[in-house]
């Protein structure tokens, strides 16, 4: 089968039982995507497939013929970071770093969803759901961080989204 990862074309023979995550980690040397639960519960394995964020542990590699896949390694390198990667560093949006690649890939996908006007569970208006801290927290809740860098993760994403303080904390019923 063949597909593109991080702009590079790959032709591989994959066991039909191999998840997209295991293909990347065990066969392609791309260990940036992490395995935290293997059940789609923690989000550490989040990749972007055709621009959308998915749990790569929950999808078989053979389902991705001709797909365009981006992993954390494709977003930026240590000396040339993607703006979200840089913001995670400056806001300390991690501690142990294990969930971080998934958080960042998820944030890339999430910002695109928000840009397209997709609402979330906490959106008051399904047709007009501007990002704020609550929206970011809700939309990022598929990515668990046991070190609990959540407040810093929200700070990092809000900065990259270009949100002002007023935009981040609009008047809301407090416990939304």
């Amino acid at each position: 089968m063949h597909f593109t990862i991080n702009g590079q074309h790959h032709e591989v023979e994959a066991d039909i039982r191999t998840s997209l995550l295991d293909l990347a980690r065990e066969h392609l040397g791309l260990t940036g995507s992490k395995k935290g639960c293997d059940h789609g519960q923690c989000g550490a394995c989040t990749m972007l497939v055709n621009g959308r964020r998915i749990n790569s542990c929950l999808t078989l590699a053979v389902m991705h013929q001709d797909d365009e896949i981006v992993t954390i390694e494709g977003l930026g390198q240590p000396d040339k970071l993607h703006p979200l990667q840089a913001a995670f560093v400056s806001h300390d949006g991690y501690q142990c770093g294990y969930c971080t690649p998934g958080q960042i890939c998820s944030a890339v996908g999430m910002l695109d969803e928000a840009k397209k006007g997709w609402p979330s569970h906490v959106s008051a208006d399904l047709t007009d759901a501007p990002l704020d801290d609550h929206e970011i927290s809700e939309r990022m809740s598929g990515n668990i961080c046991r070190c609990a860098a959540y407040p810093n993760i929200v700070d990092a994403i809000a900065e990259v989204a270009g949100l002002s303080d007023e935009q981040r904390q609009p008047e809301r019923e407090v416990a939304a």
């Binding site: 977003l75 560093v89 971080t100």
Partner: peptide, 16 residues
């Protein structure tokens, strides 16, 4: 200061 291991972690290059 930012973590000195930060760039490796956010780029998925820190080896666990």
């Amino acid at each position: 200061l930012d973590r000195i291991d930060g760039p490796l972690k956010v780029a998925g290059r820190a080896t666990y």
